[in-house]
Design a protein around this nucleic acid. Structure first.
Lengths: 315, 315
DNA sequence: CTGAAAGCGCTTACAG
DNA sequence: CTGAAAGCGCTTACAG
């Protein structure tokens, strides 16, 4: 009855609930899991170097778990390991979670997905790179976000906008580049190959790209880096070169890391709906809305956050 | 036998292990928990605004859990809630974890500790503020760290060192201040009240303290902020005031946040052994080394990290 | 509709 | 030392 069955008289229900309350009764999760078809456990698999990203992801999932009486179990996962498939097999057989949230890059590991599909374990992928048709996923539109950021720069009069690409192994890198290129094309601004630099999402790579972009007299009036760490690298180089941001150079990033708000000038960037994505994933798992037919796909909104590192193009 | 009992013939052990391997046998954690005295589950309770801090903490605990076949369950916890005691009561009765890691400020909540003691649930406190004799804890020496940082500044010729205190509600704030004051006293440098400002661990409060400290002509040659966010605020103000760091002003922080490395100049700061603390806590819980007598107490080493925001005092 | 029984997959105490 | 039985605290299918 405590599990919310129907067909119980209101009075009876109330009395039982009151008694449970008085005795501080709380069902044991292991017993429920063993006896029933639910474990009230959701697993979050990650293999991500950024504690902040993983932390944000958890916050979203946790808020939904809490409401539904679920608990979150976090599992580091070595995507590069040869036996990744077996590892996940072991995991689901010991844990019997009601579902798994797969964060990048775990969500793009074919062997992991194979095992999960075969075992019939429900899972939701967060922002996967490939095989988007394969299973339930939650993501945002990287292309549109990069597009919008570029449009913002164009609207401020910039016509010469450098771009630093992200790590080539990350799918988002290509999507963001496409958004940038599309916005330029729409505005009739031609894309110059020497304005595009390869980065790797690290501060260091941002510094190197910025040095190439900003050293000579022929330099762009704005630089859009594919993530905040690289944008910070650009700002650092600008500072060293005596270029005032945003007066001489506008800089935009992507991610809205904590650093973006404590740097000066504060960084214009894109906020990804990280907590919202994992919250949506937890929702799907808890509500068991994954079963039938075509895989669920949720697209969440990003947000372009205009702060002080961008401004009108110098004339 | 698979649980590592002694008195099994080597050959037998090997054959069983091989069979288990071949069948990919992995015991179900719920069944083990229900039947036996171990749940192979450790809970991490947090109520901390910083995802990065919580993420770092998890990494340490996770590494030990993984080795020992344990799993980590993370639980957000509302310390301010009136029914915090009941909440933790409910938690331990549904989850039956083998132990709890209590992070600040949960580790300083009297009702939580009371419930846990009464229920006989093992727990380890991470860097608690008060009642240090009460139960097992893992921490670092904030006073010594602040002392060492101040000594470093003194060694670079600084005799006029401003200090920004941390949030008055956090025990560490007082300890850090004491370390600073002690180092000055040892060096025979007198402490000037107008050089001490109250901050609240936020960037904003660092900015305000720095404005008070640096605006006039009579200003310190170095500022030691009780955490990195406030140190960043100091650097931001210095930048706005045209003070070159470290040439005109040395700045030191505390925490070694990710931002400290991507700012320019890079921030001199103290690295706290965050992951090590939670790893030690997990060790104690998994090894069940908590039972008898005087509470275990582990003191871990900090590290003063000298980077580019500090330098010789201007003459 | 309701209540008592079986059983989930293990560990543990115990009889052999 | 070893093996079979009991039992952990629930859910679920089933007999009443």
């Amino acid at each position: 009855m405590l599990n919310g069955e129907p067909n119980v008289r209101a009075e009876t229900r109330q009395r039982v609930t009151a008694a449970a309350e008085a005795l501080r009764y709380t069902p044991n999760i292991s017993a429920r899991s063993l006896a029933g078809s639910r474990s009230y456990l959701i697993g979050l698999l990650f293999d991500n170097p950024s504690p902040a990203y993983v932390g944000d992801l958890q916050l979203g999932a946790l808020s939904r778990c809490r409401e539904a009486g679920y608990h979150l179990i976090v599992e580091p996962f070595d995507t590069a390991a040869r036996d990744a498939g077996e590892a996940v097999e072991r995991l689901v057989s010991t844990l019997k979670t009601d579902g798994l949230i797969l964060t990048p890059p775990v969500c793009d590991h074919p062997a992991v997905l194979d095992v999960l599909d075969r075992a019939g374990v429900p899972y939701v992928r967060i922002a996967p790179d490939r095989d988007l048709e394969r299973a339930a996923l939650v993501h945002m539109d990287d292309t549109a976000a990069a597009h919008d950021m570029t449009v913002l720069l164009l609207a401020q009069g910039h016509r010469d906008i450098g771009f630093i690409r992200g790590h080539p192994e990350h799918g988002a890198s290509h999507l963001r580049y496409e958004g940038y290129a599309a916005a330029l094309a729409e505005a009739g601004v031609s894309l110059r190959a020497e304005r595009i630099r390869q980065g790797f999402f690290s501060f260091r790579s941002g510094v190197e790209a910025a040095e190439a972009l900003l050293s000579g007299p022929d330099r762009p009036t704005a630089v859009f880096a594919s993530n905040d760490d690289m944008a910070l690298g650009v700002m650092s180089v600008a500072n060293r070169l005596g270029l005032a941001v945003p007066h001489d150079l506008s800089v935009a990033g992507f991610d809205d890391t904590p650093t973006a708000r404590v740097i000066w000038p504060q960084l214009t960037t894109v906020r990804q709906p990280i907590a919202e994505m994992s919250a949506a994933a937890a929702d799907l798992l808890i509500g068991r809305k994954l079963g039938d037919g075509v895989p669920v796909r949720r697209l969440l909104d990003f947000q372009v956050i205009v702060r002080d590192s961008t401004g009108p193009a110098p004339r």
